[in-house]
Design a protein around this nucleic acid. Structure first.
Length: 952
RNA sequence: GGGUGAUUAGCUCAGCUGGUUAGAGCAUCUCGUUUACACCGAGAGGGUCGGGAGUUCGAAUCUCUCAUCACCCA
């Protein structure tokens, strides 16, 4: 006999072990001959990561599909693995070194540090997989891959070399997002733009040689508002320290105010007086004439917009900062550099990227300062010189004009420090070219997004894709297979020897080569995931069998990271999409819809939920809430509710055990005789089809809700209750043994259907109910997904009538305050032959469930009865002297009112000529039938009311 | 500023291609040891589907518009 409740905490680990021992997670476990494959590659979690709700949802849905398809007999592979997370992992290990007072990364050297990272990985990496096991995830752990393992590294190398040789990877000096804490380039997806309090300073850039012009401001109609003779142009900036690197001042071509001075030079109002730099005033579409003064300083090396302007207009980009975002302290003294810059400004001739980069325009006194300290000093210096724009304070004094305003500032999502746009040498992949086929795949429907609207986001991003900066200045990652000759000529090769060979051919002699220090972006290796994990570049049977994979399951916040990159690389190297479907699920938020974050303290740890409610409840909750196109607001009450659902099923099984419901080998659902049994098997077949359809259509919530309804509302609330009179009758009968077998059989089917979502409790019940009756083949996890050939015998009509009858009597009892213990007598008036037959057939059930001791068919309603209309018949409860006639009158009136309202709706509809003329005939018929039904009901209730009125 | 999505019972949400008497769970109220289950059962109350306009015989569902909120990108 079962315990009263399911003990998830002890059962779950035991079952997980059994599954694993049975080899149930292995690729192809339980596959049927001739069946196709079904494969999913896990979106690789980060080796430093631990399980959060997003993972829980993501992996639950994958596991539901995996378990479902495995049961369907497909050759299933769920390929697990992790990525090496360059920055995050390096950060974790560096922190650990610091905490242990060990030498830092630089003092221990690259090789020792990388060894140390591997050591860390061996000890602490991948905790997330143990957490996924607790959720019941059935990935094929024996095939776990890691982006840094040998095979995947080989794939990365091959891809890099091939793309380089195809001209799709190149090296160049570009503006990239620079993280000064980690001292590496990062992708713009790793940058978080946040609104912070900032300042906007307004400064005067004096015109060269003391020139003046008439500054005129006009309103929309051309009326002059303000005129002033000026010897400067006014600039607004939020970053005064970058003024040192200005290459120009730009104004909009349509801006008449500055038309007189376009093409002239102006002076940057900072630095030693004798070396003030002159820069040109140019026209460009970029400045917004209505914003600030309408004039914008152009600092190509430190701002993405300025960079574009600089490139368009041949303006030099002067780098001002070092790798830690301190002001540069290298190179020639300021005087020398400033002179070179002045020369460039005057001639307009742009030297090479390298030469420009050697010019350090940071004045000597600011060299080596932190950028924020430099900012402060520069502002002070300009103000002291009176080259700021002035405003009046409250007392009418002139004060420097500084606006306090919100500005968007980029932060590194890992480091949390302000990201600096920085001109550096990096490797780039030609994402635009690679994106082409990937865009076509989706446009031509070879890969579909579910829900479809995410296609738009995908296109948006892919069509505006920028060159992908793939190099990182880190030590942990795939080192770029490129060597530099003495003249910086690049040799891309598989190893030193090959590079040396290439160099020898190039130079005609042996030379010293220096290998590139940089590693590749983690996403470069993740992009290969769908095929590299299957063994590419080798031609493995796995690749043959499981590529293309079926579906990628991911959150929308990560479409760019995973989907886009996997699509690009797969199309290029495999010539086939990595997956035919991308299922994009929601973000899990807290119950009020706020994003879960550590700082808010509203994080729900999925493992805490598993501890408290069991993995099945957590899985069911996430599945039931995974409606397409909506965020999940997770309330723990919901999880508790689904835990209760599991207990309900558990206890239903317990009931069947107590009532001799054993499985029998010969039970055949298509030949059951009892109406109740016919009904439940028909409903089961319907539910099973709905569940299959829902899972295949990625409508996971529908699958969960269908099961919930079937198990609780149909099987437990009605089937079991309706079966009780038969099951608990004395002695043996055909009806009893059929019902016993049927109840057990349906329970088996429930276990099968529910297993993908609630694997543990169903497996446990499967074992429990397997202790009697025919022996089980094995574990539930490897059982066959059911399908049924059960014809509808129309039993549902009968049962619906029965349910209506019982509910009506219960309702009346409750409303008339009849004690539950009171046994009533029932008189049914105006019953059709069918109703009479049903009354006879279900006599015992009605008596039991409605607590009635006697049922008879009568000609007339007895005086002083409570009455309720069930279909065509009036059910009278003779309660003369007991019932409150006024209350009964009120009840019937209320009823009547309700019916009248409904009837009115139909009448109105049918009274509309246009409706009758235009609506499909079947709809009109349906409405007519409904109206007739309501009218009939109304008449009966009216009669009942009349009888009460007569008795009053 | 651009984009996307949301707005349905007190709360969290279903409601797919327009035809339901607008549903569920939780919460609420009343009743209940009818021995599978109080992590339960029975019954009940509760919504002019964010506002407005339109298309249509018919709109929670389609269109427009406004409002509020959220997220993404500038």
């Amino acid at each position: 006999m079962l315990e009263k409740t399911f003990d998830a905490a002890t059962v779950e680990p035991r079952l997980y072990d059994e599954w694993e021992k049975a080899g149930a997670f292995k690729a192809g476990a339980g596959k049927k001959d001739g069946q196709d494959s079904f494969s999913i590659v896990i979106p690789p979690p980060n080796v430093t990561g631990s399980l959060h709700m997003g993972h829980a949802l993501n992996n639950t849905l994958q596991d539901v599909m995996i378990r479902y398809h495995r049961m369907k007999g497909l050759d299933v592979l769920w390929q697990p693995g992790m990525d090496h997370a360059g920055i995050a992992t390096q950060m974790v290990v560096e922190r650990q070194l610091a905490a242990n007072n060990e030498p830092d990364r630089r003092s221990m050297g690259r090789d020792a540090f990388v060894d140390r990272v591997w050591q860390w990985k061996g000890e602490s990496g991948g905790t997330i997989f143990n957490q996924l096991r607790r959720l019941g995830a059935t990935a094929d752990w024996s095939r776990e891959r890691f982006t840094m393992d040998e095979g995947l590294s080989k794939a990365v190398q091959k891809v890099f070399i091939q793309l380089y040789n195809e001209g799709l990877i190149y090296r160049g000096k570009r503006l990239v997002n620079w993280d000064p804490k980690f001292e590496t380039a990062i992708s713009d997806l790793e940058v978080e733009n946040k609104e912070v309090d900032g300042h906007m300073w307004h400064f005067k850039y004096p015109l060269a040689g003391g020139e003046t012009y008439t500054y005129v401001e006009k309103d929309e109609d051309g009326n002059i508002l303000f005129t002033e003779e000026r010897d400067y142009i006014s600039i607004a900036t939020t970053r005064p320290e970058t003024m040192l690197g200005d290459g120009a001042v730009a104004v909009h071509p349509s801006d008449e105010r500055y038309a007189p001075i376009v093409g002239k030079l102006c002076e940057i109002p900072v630095g030693p007086k004798e070396h003030r730099r002159l820069i040109p005033i140019i026209c460009d579409e970029y400045p917004d004439p209505d914003f600030g003064s309408g004039a914008v300083k152009i600092t190509g090396a430190h701002d993405f917009n300025d960079y574009q302007v600089a490139r368009r207009n041949m303006i030099p980009c002067y780098r001002l900062m070092d790798v830690q975002a301190g002001m540069r302290a290298d190179g020639a003294p300021y005087a020398e550099c400033a002179a070179k810059a002045l020369e460039i400004a005057k001639t307009g001739e742009l030297p090479g990227e390298r030469e420009v980069d050697e010019i350090n325009l940071v004045p000597d006194e600011y060299r080596g300062l932190d950028r924020f300290e430099a900012r402060k000093q520069i502002v002070d210096a300009i103000n002291a010189e009176g080259l700021c724009v002035f405003a009046k304070d409250e007392e009418g004094n002139d004060v420097p004009f500084v606006e306090n305003k919100k500005i968007m500032q980029p932060f590194g999502d890992r480091s949390g420090v302000v990201i600096e746009p920085m001109l550096t040498d990096q490797w780039f992949a030609d994402a635009k070219t690679l994106a082409g086929p990937a865009i076509d795949s989706v446009r031509e429907g070879r890969t579909k997004f579910v829900p479809q609207n995410w296609e738009k986001t995908y296109f948006e991003w892919m069509e505006n894709i920028e060159p992908w900066c793939i190099s990182r200045q880190l030590w942990w990652g795939h080192r770029i297979p490129a060597w530099f000759g003495p003249d910086d000529h690049i040799f891309v090769a598989h190893d030193d020897a090959e590079a040396a060979e290439q160099a020898k051919a190039h130079y005609g002699k042996d030379v010293d080569l220096k290998r590139d220090e940089d590693v590749l972006d983690t996403w470069f290796s993740s992009a290969l995931w769908p095929f590299s994990t299957l063994g590419w570049p080798d031609k493995t049977p796995e690749l043959e069998r499981y590529y293309q994979t079926d579906v990628l399951v991911t959150g929308f916040d990560i479409i760019f990271f995973w989907v886009a990159r996997m699509m690009m690389m797969s199309m290029h190297f495999m010539k086939e999409e990595p997956f035919h479907t991308v299922y994009v699920h929601a973000l899990v938020r807290d119950e009020h819809g706020a994003k879960m974050s550590k700082s808010k303290g509203n994080v729900i740890d999925p493992l805490d939920l598993v501890d408290e409610y069991g993995a099945d409840a957590v899985r069911f909750t996430l599945t039931a809430m995974a409606a397409q196109g909506r965020d999940i607001k997770l309330a723990t009450s919901r999880v508790a509710g689904y835990r209760n659902f599991g207990t309900k099923l558990w206890n239903a099984t317990r009931f069947t055990q107590m009532n001799g419901c054993e499985r029998t080998a010969e039970f055949d659902p298509s030949t059951v005789k009892e109406t109740v049994n016919q009904w439940i098997v028909t409903e089961l077949a319907k539910a099973a089809k709905d569940v299959s359809d829902a899972i295949e259509a990625y409508r996971f919530n529908d699958a969960a809700n269908t099961l919930y309804r079937f198990v609780w509302n149909l099987y437990c609330d009605w089937y079991i209750e309706l079966s009780k009179p038969v099951l608990q009758a004395e002695g043996e009968s055909a009806a009893k043994s059929e019902t016993q077998a049927c109840a057990a059989w349906v329970l088996d089917q429930i276990c099968l259907l529910l297993h993908p979502i609630m694997p543990f409790i169903t497996e446990e019940l499967w074992a429990e109910t397997g202790k009697t009756g025919p022996a089980r083949k094995g574990l539930l996890i490897l059982e066959d997904w059911p399908s049924y050939d059960i014809k509808d015998t129309g039993a549902a009509d009968d049962i619906n009538w029965l349910v209506d009858m019982i509910t009506a009597i219960r309702s009346i009892r409750s409303e008339m305050n009849i004690k539950p213990s009171t046994q009533l007598k029932l008189e049914v008036v105006g019953a059709s032959d069918e109703t009479k037959a049903r009354l006879a057939a279900h006599d015992a059930i009605i008596k039991r469930l409605a607590r009635v001791e006697d049922i008879k068919v009568s000609e007339a309603v007895p005086q002083g009865s409570a009455q309720v209309v069930v279909h065509e018949a009036t059910v009278a409860l003779p309660l003369a002297g007991i019932i409150d006639l006024d209350a009964e009158k009120a009840r019937l009136e209320k009823d009547l009112d309700k019916i009248a309202k409904v009837a009115e709706k139909f009448e109105k509809k049918l009274g509309n000529e246009k409706f009758v003329a235009n609506a499909p005939a079947e709809i009109v018929e349906e409405q007519k039938a409904k109206l007739a039904e309501q009218n009939e009901l109304k008449a009966k209730v009216q009669e009942a009311l009349d009888r009460i009125l007569a008795a009053l």
